[in-house]
């Protein structure tokens, strides 16, 4: 459980020993323990380091997306475009790996993998910036703006490949662009790099939320945008920044996924945005903004990932997985409304 330690960065000290409060606050953590215990009991293969690492590398994709989603939801918004952005970024990475034909010079340029990664993240940031400008300056509701961008990004990805998939992402040694599978297959200290990327991003996110002025601005403008603005918080740039960061997270997730698969398809990441939202909600964040933590969101992502992989391992049909995931989400939202319902301020 090395992940659990890393994602504790940025937590707030717990106050009081109210038992109901403790269960409510730590519900995702308890849920994770229950899931691990139940599946370990049901299948001898579940409780092993290698299985945890495999499951964690599945969680990495959703986890990275949900970090970006957490920032957006803390701001009181929603980003439905991350799944499509993930797909588009994967396809663009695949496209760049095939070489760029520069007709003017009559050459085909093969950018090294790090350049591909940087360009892909730049694309994610651009998609996020479009979302942000639409929402902050053109006052399009976040749900609608990101819904539109979701379709556009998916459409562009399909257009680029004509619906086909880039399969040979390995690169060639003589072109100097090998190593795309590095992110998906390599391990550091026996931990998959995708998981390490998730841990790093979670730590960064936790630190940003807890210890930077941007983090404080984000909580404030999500909790009460008008009050934050009158207190001198640059609410519009905060709003745009969270969508850019969410786009970058989607791009990183796209890189990790296409690297794990060594192929980039235009339909990759379909409906992943919903899983990311579910992880954030299970982690105790309020969709109205202002409440939520990195720790909770990571636990939420692991609850979803460990649950669905556990069901696969014990041989439950994937249809049932869908039902279980839905039930967990509803339960989480129910607990959210109990937790926050009593605190609503009436004026």
């Amino acid at each position: 459980m090395s992940e659990a330690k890393v994602i504790r960065a940025g937590e707030k000290p717990a106050k009081g020993f109210d038992i109901t409060q403790l269960i409510l606050e730590g519900r995702a953590f308890f849920a994770l323990i229950v899931i691990v215990a139940v599946f370990s009991f049901l299948s001898p293969n579940y409780f092993s380091t290698s299985n945890f690492l495999i499951m964690a590398s599945h969680v990495a994709i959703y986890g990275i997306l949900s970090i970006g989603m957490l920032l957006v939801i803390l701001n009181g918004g929603i980003d439905l475009s991350v799944g499509s952005t993930l797909g588009l970024c994967g396809v663009v990475a695949g496209f760049l790996m095939q070489g760029i034909t520069l007709k003017a010079f009559g050459v085909i340029a093969y950018p090294p993998v790090w350049v591909v990664a940087v360009l892909t993240c730049g694309l994610g940031a651009l998609v996020g910036a479009i979302n942000g400008v639409l929402i902050a300056y053109l006052r399009v509701p976040a749900f609608v703006a990101t819904l539109g961008v979701m379709y556009v990004a998916r459409g562009v990805a399909l257009l680029m490949t004509n619906g086909l998939t880039y399969n040979n992402l390995g690169g060639r040694p003589e072109l100097g662009n090998t190593g795309f599978d590095w992110l998906g297959f390599n391990r550091l200290f026996n931990v998959p790099l995708g998981v390490l990327a998730l841990a790093l991003l979670a730590a960064l996110c936790g630190l940003t939320l807890a210890r930077t002025s941007f983090g404080r601005w984000l909580y404030a403008s999500g909790g009460n945008m008008r009050a934050a603005e009158l207190s001198g918080v640059p609410v519009k740039s905060v709003q745009i920044t969270v969508y850019i960061l969410s786009g970058i997270c989607a791009a990183i997730a796209g890189l990790v996924l296409s690297s794990q698969l060594t192929s980039a398809g235009p339909t990759a990441g379909t409906s992943y945005e919903l899983t990311a939202i579910a992880a954030v909600v299970i982690g105790g964040a309020a969709l109205t903004g202002g409440r939520g933590s990195t720790r909770g969101t990571m636990l939420g992502a692991f609850v979803i990932g460990f649950l669905s992989d556990g069901l696969v391992i014990i041989g439950v049909s994937s249809y049932w997985q869908t039902v279980f995931t839905g039930a967990v989400i509803i339960l989480a939202v129910l607990l959210n409304s109990i937790q926050y319902g009593g605190r609503l301020v009436r004026s």
């Binding site: 404030a220 909790g223 009460n224 008008r226 009050a227 009158l230 301020v345």
Partner: peptide, 10 residues
């Protein structure tokens, strides 16, 4: 105060 002054979640 409630609408413009305070962030209730903080």
């Amino acid at each position: 105060r409630q609408r413009d002054g305070l962030v209730q979640s903080m």
